[in-house]
Nucleic acid binder design. Structure first.
Lengths: 120, 120
DNA sequence: CGGTATCCGAAACGATACTG
DNA sequence: CAGTATCGTTTCGGATACCG
């Protein structure tokens, strides 16, 4: 690993990509925005079932800082904020497609694993 | 989201795939095995620079339980163990390729982000 | 050499209450 | 409705010592 003064070094594009879409929720948010189109905060949160408000907001901020999504605040009361993908976000979602396909094809294999791991 | 009694439900193939390759290290291990071919434990660990033994072993066990890699123990002394990809592992590595490409193409954008986040 | 066991701190996540 | 603040919990990764 080189050390040329930049804050982060990546071995391959993979850890750059996974630093964005890694974690438990962010890829789901990305996916929802890709499939459903632009969404309001509340809508989006209902689609990503189980996520807490706090984590949702944190994830959205990171995705925004990464240039993956855009936040549009209509500055009304009650508030109305809409999130949508940037072009980077769209291309990222496309790059995620093969992985998604792979996942579908191997779901049973993976679900069986869950039981094995339970016995750890 | 269906509920048919299985232990884990996946929204899309994506969280199935990321439940395997997520986390900080496992995708790097997968990648090394894909690029370099079968490797011994020590070799592999040197390639995935920075990982501790404990975490390495945990990651390898999970990947093995997931059917992504195979562990071959030569049962010699001193020990000689070799890890290699299964066919699932190979196809997973292939599915990861577009993501890797995307990452390379957006590295600068992402590295800049690191500085923004530092100011959070 | 490859692996186990244990302890520890940091980070991610989750629940709840509250605000403009 | 969208977001903040604060809490507690869980999960993950790092360090170290030890075993066959």
């Amino acid at each position: 690993m080189a050390n040329d003064g930049t804050q982060r070094e990546f071995y391959c594009g993979l850890d750059a990509a996974l630093s964005i879409v890694g974690g438990r929720w962010k890829f789901l948010i990305l996916w929802q925005l890709a499939v459903q189109g632009p969404q309001r905060f509340g809508q989006l949160r209902r689609m990503v079932a189980g996520i807490s408000e706090k984590v949702m907001i944190g994830a959205l901020k990171e995705l925004e800082a990464d240039g993956i999504i855009t936040r549009k605040d209509y500055r009304t009361v009650p508030p109305h904020v809409e999130y949508s993908l940037t072009s980077s976000g769209t291309s990222l979602a496309e790059a995620l497609n093969p992985l998604c396909q792979w996942g579908y094809a191997h779901m049973e294999q993976i679900e069986n694993r869950a039981e094995q791991l339970a016995a750890r």
